[in-house]
Write a protein that binds this DNA or RNA. Structure first.
Lengths: 338, 338
DNA sequence: CTGTTAGCGCCTTCAG
DNA sequence: CTGAAGGCGCTAACAG
């Protein structure tokens, strides 16, 4: 059985391929009568144009690549949702890749996307090496980078997340409530964003008069289990903190779960704060305080900026998104440990 | 700046396009000397073949479509992981679509994938209408359908999840522990799999001597919030159940969270069981009993079967995956409510 | 208002 | 051992 192409439609409708093409894409006037005839044949054959061929001819695929560090992190679900919604409405299709915090894989995926001729790319992965970024930049591929430094240009834009505002609010709230001993659960310094969060936290503590020797830094892995492990390390120390700040909500939830598991009660024994504001924050008991990010908006913005670049109207090449501290039960200042 | 194509490589290496093509794809012998020369030019120009053109010529894209009902359900993360891993190793790329339990959108996405000439498709979405399935079948597109009936053929295969084994174990365990009044939180009868789970549950209860008037059916939405709402409805009734079975783990977690929120204690007041065995089951307190499915294996199997179809060695067109009951604290039989 | 023609970038038969 | 030429399915000048 022969595949039905634009040529067979043309033949059967008694017109040329170009006429068919034009009625499909509405790209030039076609007499109503012949138009209808073409449409009928298309209908009859149940014909659908081959996008591959179209993309090759037009040199654009209407496909964009999206690279995330971790598809299982709920934080990303809202973001994906935003990107997807915006893409759907503008008739773009998404090639989704899950980098799993792996530098090599990230690089690999970017290349694959380029090979598949994506029109542009959105990267929200902390696992980015300098080389990868440099190569991307050289490639001139339209790109929107979220939460990572990237040189602005005609075909790139950045979404910067301002963690400082949120972290400052948190620190002030905790310090003014009397907290003096802190711990921070980070992931690894390889991940740019977690290194930033750590540095901002330390510097804000400093501004609030808490010296670094009062701050314990423990490594996690951005996941619940990493948070659990980190918490075990924390309570094994002599001088325990009264307040724990985790690099993200999943890690914070790990702390919360393990603390409860070991019989501690929050926030009276420890206060704990995460980052992201995933839905689960409100489900657990005590509800989890967090540095909130507007995830859905981030997704919408990223896609919108990319589309602007693709249409050469990228007037704004950088957006700054503010974070803010949301105090919930897990860091209720009425409870000052000790 | 001109884009570097196979033609410019050919010119610069002083050979024909076909030779270049052959060294790239290792598809016929090329004298070592010229081979090296071609490779050098490729290196120098940093040339990467355009997959689009290749796909068009070969009439295969090495791309497969994956449709899920809900990317935010942790259950799928393991599945995606499995599919991805298998795809990565076999050099396939994944087009991921998130149907969000929406029938129309699902249909829409399938069409988009076909337009983009995916080589095959894996569907794990409960939101499938008969028409969609019929159209898919007519299209002859190689497909693997998970947890939904689909007629077997040369270019299709199914993964059937046997919920009965798991549900039977659960029912027996609960009934023998003395439970007599049950509630079930389903989603909607539109979703095939949730209708099945409900029917199996009812029939197993029946076999165990519990008549249907002892079983309360409430609607949820497959999410945590739906579980919370459902639980509120349950406790508003006169005759409360002692045991709640939820269509999936997220719903069950909603029950668990809301129950704790309202001051109930589990499993002494109610026992609760979910389906899927997502990681969170072990994190919460009490840990959540569930009907477990081997998600990662399901993903691996689905992709493997699809690849077999694509290579015309689809000897097995149906796999049955057994579920099993995992009893944890949330349905500990030592506690019999009332 | 519509048809002809020449690509898009790659693969592959057929010659030599 | 390698080139030339045609084609994958669609689009877009250029003519008329």
């Amino acid at each position: 059985m022969k595949k039905t192409t634009i040529a067979v439609i043309a033949t059967n409708a008694g017109v040329s391929k170009s006429t068919v093409s034009h009625v499909i894409n509405n790209t030039r006037y076609v007499e109503e009568k012949t138009r209808q005839r073409v449409l009928d044949v298309i209908e009859k054959y149940n014909y659908r144009p081959n996008k591959l061929a179209r993309s090759l001819a037009l040199n654009q695929t209407h496909t964009i690549g999206l690279i995330l560090s971790d598809i299982s992190n709920p934080f990303y679900h809202q973001v994906i949702h935003g990107v997807e919604e915006c893409a759907y409405q503008n008739n773009y299709i998404i090639l989704l890749f899950n980098a799993r915090y792996d530098l090599a894989r990230t690089q690999d995926y970017i290349n694959t996307m380029i090979d598949h001729q994506v029109d542009g790319i959105i990267i929200m992965a902390s696992s980015l090496s300098e080389e990868t970024l440099f190569a991307l930049q050289q490639s001139k591929l339209p790109a929107v980078i979220v939460d990572h430094p990237y040189p602005a240009s005609d075909n790139s834009a950045s979404i910067i997340i301002d963690f400082q505002t949120g972290i400052k609010e948190m620190v002030q709230s905790l310090v003014s409530a009397g907290h003096t001993r802190f711990a921070h659960i980070t992931s690894t310094d390889n991940l740019w964003t977690s290194r930033m969060r750590k540095e901002i936290f330390l510097s804000e503590l400093n501004s609030a008069g808490i010296t670094h020797d009062k701050v314990d830094i423990i490594n996690g892995n951005m996941h619940i289990d990493g948070g659990r492990d980190a918490f075990k390390q924390i309570i094994a120390k002599n001088e325990k903190p009264t307040s724990i700040f985790a690099v993200n909500d999943l890690t914070a939830l790990g702390v919360l779960f393990e603390a409860q598991n070991l019989g501690f009660s929050l926030p009276t024994d420890f206060s704990i704060v995460g980052v992201d504001d995933i839905h689960l924050c409100l489900d657990v008991k005590p509800s989890l305080s967090t540095i909130a990010l507007p995830c859905y908006e981030i997704g919408i913005n990223a896609m919108t900026m990319l589309i602007n670049i693709l249409q050469n109207k990228n007037d704004v090449t950088e957006i700054i998104i503010k974070s803010r501290y949301i105090q919930r039960e897990s860091s209720d200042i009425k409870f000052i440990p000790d």
